[in-house]
């Protein structure tokens, strides 16, 4: 059972640790909505050091382009979606 369900409002952790981080910097601290749950995958932050386990839940998170870029040129319906591991997501009220 995954911690988050589709529709859950989340915020990407605003954190800048060293290492092989697959959470893009442009999304850190940004709010989005869980679009779907993909399953549990090896954590790239450990794989980079040839370490495996424990697996991390992976979600597709949807961000409104206008939330990411205040001066966004396009439709307010436009979204950016990225695949974010569970430990990078904080739940919102």
């Amino acid at each position: 059972m995954s911690r988050l369900s589709p529709g859950a409002r989340v915020r990407v952790r605003e954190d800048y640790p060293p290492g092989h981080i697959r959470t893009p910097v442009y999304l850190r601290g940004k709010q989005g909505v869980v679009e779907r749950y993909f399953g549990a995958f090896e954590n790239p932050e450990r794989l980079a050091y040839n370490l495996t386990g424990p697996k991390k839940d992976l979600y597709k998170v949807r961000f409104r382009a206008t939330d990411l870029w205040p001066d966004y040129q396009g439709s307010p319906k436009d979204v950016i979606e990225a695949d974010i591991y569970d430990h990078w997501l904080e739940t919102m009220g």
């Binding site: 697959r22 959470t23 893009p24 993909f38 995958f41 790239p44 992976l58 382009a65 396009g74 439709s75 319906k77 436009d78 979204v79 950016i80 979606e81 990225a82 695949d83 974010i84 591991y85």
Partner: peptide, 8 residues
């Protein structure tokens, strides 16, 4: 428009 960033 949906942009899919393949991050994982």
């Amino acid at each position: 428009l949906r942009v899919h960033d393949s991050t994982a």
